[in-house]
Design a protein around this nucleic acid. Sequence first.
DNA 1: TAGATTGTTAATCGATTAACAATC
DNA 2: TAGATTGTTAATCGATTAACAATC
Lengths: 210, 210
Amino acid sequence: MREGISLAVVRRLPRYYRFLRELMANDVTKISSKELGVRMGYSASQIRQDFNCFGGFGQQGYGYNVDYLYNEIGKILGVEKKYKAVIVGVGNLGHAIAGHINFEKRGFRLIGLFDIRQDIVGQEVGGKPVMHMDELEAFCRKNKPTVAVLTLPRDEAGAVAKQLIELGIKGLWNFSNGDLELESDEVIIENMHLGDSLMTLCYRITDSIE
Amino acid sequence: MREGISLAVVRRLPRYYRFLRELMANDVTKISSKELGVRMGYSASQIRQDFNCFGGFGQQGYGYNVDYLYNEIGKILGVEKKYKAVIVGVGNLGHAIAGHINFEKRGFRLIGLFDIRQDIVGQEVGGKPVMHMDELEAFCRKNKPTVAVLTLPRDEAGAVAKQLIELGIKGLWNFSNGDLELESDEVIIENMHLGDSLMTLCYRITDSIE
DNA sequence: TAGATTGTTAATCGATTAACAATC
DNA sequence: TAGATTGTTAATCGATTAACAATC
């Protein structure tokens, strides 16, 4: 059922999930692919194709039950997984992510933060204690986190990523503005290249205003 | 020259730019599409197609001059533009972006920050004073920023975005975890949906470990 | 000149859209 | 039953890859 789903489809799932939650909040109980398409800016065809990658969630002549579809997509995404996550690098950005992101609602559980700066080690951030990088290895061996959030400088990210993979990390959420040079079959990497996005915005603005 | 470049190509440009800078730092003066392809994980064909969207930057039989290509891509992206930018919402995330992102190197100049919280208004963040949201309108009329970084809660983002567009904003860098319901021809939107990315990571990890 | 590598056209592949039979 | 809308197959579109003539 899940074999060979393209990343293009997968990346639309969280957006469907958000829109469906919104519909639920507005007490909408059913929706057709046509109407959802209008709201989301997708074609009705695409929506039906997307959902049918994972099985038939709709009912002919009726449409889709919003609650049911929301829950199914949540299951597909794995929102209930509670994969253990650590944040490595508790500067501005790591701090912000610890406080800002609801890991619990997105399939993860934040279990620890790490930094080298002595002034932040020992503090609580996002309700969790910040530990020293020296403790990372022992912590991972004991607690076996599945993913690591990399919010440290570009120069340090590569070495830490390698270390984490050796410690059994399965996924990296990479905020350092560079590509991690790792074999792609070792680990799943989601890059959040803020700098790239900002430069793309610059291009697109220039393009739009001539 | 710039007509009808697909977004797929544009989104690769910042990555090329990063890799070329890296090559320069390693004193590499020339590179072929083949070798660059190996390093970046693209096909040589794709690289040549991408560059030729904007004109012939290479030399047959030789390859591409790294310095020249870097500078040309920089110009295409508009790194020297210095579009004026404001950050709206100086919570954890806005704070982090102000301190973490080098706007100057990416075509922008940060000229002001805004928040409603009295305890942060008046402070300096990222070298700029934080102003109260009440001052946003007058500030924009006077200084005419081109883009706004939206780092405020989802519920507030929509209304603020509308206001900014009326004030002449041309681009939005949206970090609020929701879609701004705006006519796409009014403004360029770059979404950084952290939540969506994290959920995608969850899916992909589940997929990879079965 | 011979070798290398681009710029560019043609072929392929994958993703999106259209069409329609199935069925609620 | 008639109307609506899905699930799914076929057609189209766009992006990537392959091929090769041009040329440094």
